[in-house]
């Protein structure tokens, strides 16, 4: 536990010292801000405000942001050789991976918390469906965690950060759009199964419309667990490869 905390603290400090993380935060706020602004403008005349607006947007852009936030985490340790000191420190390999994952998730949570500002504005100018919004935020928080775990996994595969980001981007795209294959085979059952395997298949039909289903929570938790497990194994394999 303590070692997870020590790793976590170092990584969080790195996020707040990293220009890339600030750039991502800026892009994040810019995109969500513009979207929010448009929606509020529309809500005056055309339609009511959309409670899951920001989380819905994030569900799309996390496919891009997660690789950028996580590519450094293990790839840099491999490139700088610090992995040799980590693996010879008296700590479990798993605490390295878990500490790093939690730091990425914490940084994402911080970004997500910034967007709560929009919700405060909404509460003041209209009567949003707060329960719906909370469900959507819970959903995107879990969804984000799953994408970050996948990003971390690929950061463990290489010492090249760009390559790590690229590989996780591809994987996340497949996980996101994978159900399109179901449309190609034109079989409703296959399509339904595939949809249930994708990241958005557990977000769009539930959290996004304000519904919290246990199966969706289990799905995201499962993605995180599997990705982290593989990442730990990949780190361990460093010992065999030298």
């Amino acid at each position: 536990m303590l070692t997870i905390w020590i790793i976590f603290r170092r990584e969080v400090a790195q996020y707040f010292a990293s220009p890339l993380a600030y750039l991502i935060a800026a892009a994040f706020l810019l995109l969500t801000g513009i979207t929010f602004n448009n929606d509020v403008a529309l809500s005056i005349t055309v339609k009511p405000v959309e409670p899951a607006l920001i989380p819905d947007l994030l569900a799309e852009i996390m496919v891009l942001i997660a690789p950028l936030l996580t590519m450094r985490l293990l790839a840099e340790e491999h490139r700088e050789g610090t992995v040799e000191l980590l693996l010879t420190a008296p700590i479990a390999d798993s605490s390295i991976v878990i500490g790093k994952f939690l730091s990425a998730w914490a940084y994402f949570t911080f970004l997500l918390a910034l967007t709560l500002l929009y919700q405060f504005i909404l509460v003041n100018i209209s009567q949003p469906d707060i329960a719906h919004t909370i469900a959507a935020y819970l959903g995107i928080w879990l969804y984000g965690g799953a994408t970050l775990a996948v990003g971390l996994l690929f950061s463990a595969t290489t010492e090249n950060q760009i390559l790590a980001a690229f590989l996780s981007l591809i994987t996340l795209l497949v996980l996101y759009f994978g159900d399109s294959a179901g449309q190609i085979v034109a079989n409703l059952d296959v399509a339904a199964i595939l949809f249930n395997l994708t990241l958005r298949g557990h977000y769009a039909p539930s959290f996004s419309i304000g519904v919290v289903r246990a199966e969706d929570v289990v799905y995201y938790a499962g993605v995180m667990a599997v990705a982290l497990f593989i990442a730990i194994r990949l780190l361990e394999s460093k010992r065999w490869r030298g």
């Binding site: 790195q14 700088e80 050789g81 420190a89």
Partner: peptide, 24 residues
């Protein structure tokens, strides 16, 4: 252990770096 190529975290301070390993 001091490996052949000194492994460093370039973005940490000297103190922060040693402190990290001490804690770990």
């Amino acid at each position: 252990y001091l490996p052949e190529r000194v492994p460093v975290y370039p973005d940490m301070t000297v103190r922060g770096y040693v402190l990290f390993w001490a804690r770990l």
